[in-house]
């Protein structure tokens, strides 16, 4: 695997993704598409007392999107909603030990999907979160998060 375009950690998370699959009766769900590649990411959350008790993801996306979601979901598990909203795609990439530049948008998709799920949750429960200020599930990651 030495000459692969991805490092071993990315490959490991791609092959054995954490938190992948279905969730029964989630408290929150968010689905978002990438305007860059057309791929789709879906996040399910179990939330209790403002804490993310459990998280699952599903994706129609590339290997980098799967690996990104695997680490991103690990990163928010057991965290408060506000903490989860602070997770950025840059941190996800760091956690993965790097992604090729043309795959940065795939990590953005994971970050956006988490925010979308929380956004839907906030709307449903009439809550406001500092970390959601200015977040619009329909915005274009092209404009932000440039490396």
């Amino acid at each position: 695997m030495g000459n692969n375009m991805f490092n071993d950690k990315v490959i490991e998370h791609f092959m054995n993704p954490h938190n992948a699959g279905e969730m029964e009766n989630p408290d929150a769900e968010g689905t978002i598409g990438s305007p860059v590649c057309g791929d789709i990411m879906q996040i399910f959350l179990k939330i209790e007392d403002n804490i993310i008790k459990d998280v699952k993801f599903k994706t129609f996306g590339c290997g980098s999107a799967i690996a990104s979601s695997s680490v991103a979901t690990d990163m928010i598990k057991g965290k408060t909603i506000e903490e989860a909203l602070k997770v950025t795609n840059k941190q996800v990439i760091e956690e993965l030990g790097g992604l090729p530049s043309q795959k940065v948008h795939c990590s953005v998709l994971s970050e956006q999907a988490i925010k979308t799920a929380i956004y839907n949750y906030a709307k449903e429960h009439n809550l406001e979160f500092e970390g959601l200020k200015g977040f619009d599930p329909n915005y274009d990651p092209h404009d932000h998060h440039d490396e």
Partner: peptide
């Protein structure tokens, strides 16, 4: 299943194939 996922998994298992035409692998 997204094509790039298939290609990457195949690649990790020593199999070379391609999506559509050789040069369109990074665009929408």
């Amino acid at each position: 299943v997204e094509g790039e996922t298939i290609l990457l998994y195949l690649d990790v298992h020593g199999i070379s194939a391609s999506s559509g035409s050789a040069c369109s692998s990074s665009s929408f």
